[in-house]
């Protein structure tokens, strides 16, 4: 099957800064791909370019004609002045049937929340509702931007389990950005390590042992503990392994 989204030699300048340089990217149907990388490495920019929210400065993005994206944003601030029940939220941007709404809430594990106000939900409930809404468009590509931010560890583990279930049940490809490397690594088919460019790319165990990845995240427990002491700039000691464009 052909790829859902392909980016070729993608460069994005945004707000006067070059966020991405010469990025090649692709995702196939049913694949779970995770993007990891330090803060400011262009992870969210790549997602937004794929969504069409930021234009490519150079290079191009090709989307499959049948592409249907379900998007779960990093955080969604709902102003307290906006009254919005969970059920009504699911109707955005298109009205959905009550049966479908109930099924999506059930699938996301938050069936009891339909009549609650969005602003009164806990962090975990909120993320599940966002996921339910994203599922309603019957996406073949589900994009999640650090969807477990603000969840505790059992909460985020359960959330990733849920996402894997969604993939298994619906066959949707999953593209996510995450900081929680140890969990993500286990659940992904492929990991892309990003730092303005693609540092390395491949199966989780391959990426975890790649020098570029270690330069960014260190070596401890597949990088999970190194999260808070990574360097923002790094040199490529292994340019003979792959060619990085810096």
């Amino acid at each position: 099957m052909s790829d859902l989204v392909t980016a070729k030699d993608l460069t994005v300048r945004y707000g006067g800064q070059t966020a991405l340089t010469h990025v090649d990217f692709h995702i196939a149907p049913g694949e779970i791909v995770t993007i990891v990388g330090p803060n400011g490495s262009g992870k969210t920019t790549l997602l937004r370019a794929i969504l069409g929210a930021i234009p490519a400065t150079a290079g191009r993005i090709v989307r499959a004609p049948n592409l249907r994206i379900g998007y779960v944003p990093q955080r969604l601030h709902i102003d307290l002045t906006l009254p919005l029940t969970v059920r009504r939220f699911l109707d955005l941007p298109r009205r959905v049937r009550d049966n479908d709404a109930a099924a999506a809430l059930d699938q996301a594990g938050c069936a009891a929340l339909a009549d609650r106000q969005m602003t009164k939900l806990s962090g975990g409930q909120f993320q599940r509702v966002l996921l339910a809404r994203a599922l309603l468009s019957k996406p073949n590509l589900l994009i999640l931007d650090e969807a477990t931010q603000g969840l505790d560890q059992p909460g985020s583990a359960a959330f990733y389990q849920l996402i894997e279930d969604v993939r298994d049940r619906t066959g949707a490809a999953i593209l996510m950005v995450s900081h929680e490397l140890h969990v993500v690594m286990a659940a992904s088919d492929r990991v892309i390590c990003l730092n303005g460019h693609v540092c390395c790319d491949g199966r989780p165990e391959v990426v975890a042992s790649a020098p570029e990845y270690r330069a960014l995240f260190g070596t401890g427990t597949q990088g999970a503990l190194a999260l808070y002491r990574h360097e923002h700039t790094h040199s490529h000691d292994a340019d003979d392994i792959h060619e990085a464009a810096e």
Binding site: R48, L51, G52, A53, I69, G70, Y71, P73, L76, H77, I78, L82, L92, P93, R94, S137, I143
Partner: peptide, 10 residues
């Protein structure tokens, strides 16, 4: 109004 990226995705 909720979120520009949510709109783009839709």
């Amino acid at each position: 109004t909720l979120n520009p990226d949510l709109a783009f995705a839709a």
